[in-house]
Structures are given as structure tokens and as C-alpha cells.
Simulated assay, not measured.
Amino acid sequence: MTQRQAFFPPDRHALYEKHRYSAAVRSGDLLFVSGQVGSRDDGSPEPDFEHQVQRAFANLRAALGSAGCGFDDVLDVTSFHTDPQAQIETVLKVKNQHFPEPPHPAWTAIGTTWIAGFDFEIKVIARVPVTP
């Protein structure tokens, strides 16, 4: 049986404690990163939508980095949007800053009505790089 190993960014934010979940869990050579939202350090939402998306990606970078991964290691992305039609251009603008070159990861975008007070969430699966 493969053992799970939990990872947290060094500046672990309040949501992990409040809702009792791991930022990322490694199993074998795969890293499953929990949904990252545009939260401030205290867990509250960033009010401006573009800044909320940027913070979500920054939180994602930190969660990936805690396990030795980066955006180049991401295989699969799922994003959640409270108003996809109005938000997609902003999301794509920020996404393209982090995934600028092909091959791009697989991506599924889902419209939803509630994300615990947030308007955007992103979760990924990454392959942990092999260290020599």
C-alpha cells in the first residue's frame, strides 16, 4: 500500500486549520493539491476578482513548492467559477502567465454557485519530479 504524505506551505494559512485539510498529498509520484482560493493569510477572500485569482495561483504555487513541484509539473487542472462567462477572460489572463508554453495541462472549468465566500478555486494533480 502506498503511503500518503501531506505537505503545507511554510506560511500555512488559516483555512487548512479551520477546515482540517492538507494543502497537498503525495502518493507515489503524484501530488494531489487541494483547491486553492484567493485567500489572504487570515483565510478571508481577496475582494477584487483579478487579485483573488492571482492570490489563488500564488497559493497554488506555494502548495506545489512545499512538495518540490512547480507549474511545469502540473498534469491536470480543475477550476471552479461562480460566474464563468463574466470571469473567464480574467482567469485566462492569469492562467496564461503561469502556463505560458505548450504542452499545457489538461483543464476542466466548472461553474458553481458557492465556493465558501470565494469566486474562484483551482485544484491540480502534478507529477513529483524525480531527484537524482
Rank of each mutant, 00 (worst) to 15 (best):
109 A>S: 14
129 P>A: 02
12 R>H: 05
52 Q>W: 02
6 A>W: 02
120 F>K: 06
116 A>H: 08
129 P>I: 01
69 C>G: 01
40 R>V: 05
86 A>W: 03
5 Q>Y: 07
98 H>K: 07
78 T>H: 09
50 E>P: 08
40 R>Y: 14
15 L>W: 12
118 F>R: 02
2 T>K: 12
20 R>M: 11
33 V>Y: 03
6 A>R: 11
78 T>V: 15
121 E>A: 13
79 S>E: 09
82 T>P: 05
111 G>I: 05
46 E>G: 08
103 P>Y: 00
23 A>L: 08
97 Q>D: 13
74 V>L: 01
53 V>K: 07
112 T>M: 02
20 R>G: 11
26 R>F: 09
17 E>F: 01
61 R>A: 15
117 G>K: 01
17 E>K: 10
70 G>R: 04
77 V>D: 00
105 P>R: 00
81 H>S: 09
36 Q>H: 10
121 E>W: 00
27 S>H: 13
58 A>P: 06
85 Q>R: 12
103 P>Q: 07
129 P>S: 02
77 V>A: 10
41 D>R: 14
126 A>R: 01
117 G>M: 02
76 D>S: 14
120 F>S: 05
30 L>G: 11
34 S>Q: 13
86 A>I: 07
18 K>Y: 04
70 G>T: 09
54 Q>F: 04
62 A>Q: 13
26 R>K: 15
54 Q>W: 00
55 R>L: 15
88 I>A: 10
95 K>N: 11
112 T>R: 00
54 Q>H: 05
51 H>C: 09
14 A>Y: 11
82 T>M: 05
59 N>F: 06
100 P>S: 06
87 Q>E: 10
82 T>I: 05
21 Y>F: 08
103 P>F: 03
115 I>D: 01
107 W>F: 08
113 T>R: 12
4 R>V: 09
123 K>Y: 04
121 E>M: 04
57 F>T: 11
29 D>W: 14
40 R>A: 14
75 L>C: 12
88 I>V: 13
90 T>N: 00
42 D>V: 06
17 E>I: 00
88 I>R: 07
89 E>C: 12
23 A>K: 01
34 S>N: 15
51 H>Y: 12
18 K>G: 09
117 G>N: 04
6 A>P: 10
36 Q>N: 15
25 V>R: 08
46 E>S: 04
109 A>Q: 04
42 D>R: 05
22 S>A: 15
125 I>N: 01
8 F>D: 07
65 G>C: 06
115 I>F: 03
15 L>G: 10
3 Q>V: 13
101 E>D: 14
108 T>V: 12
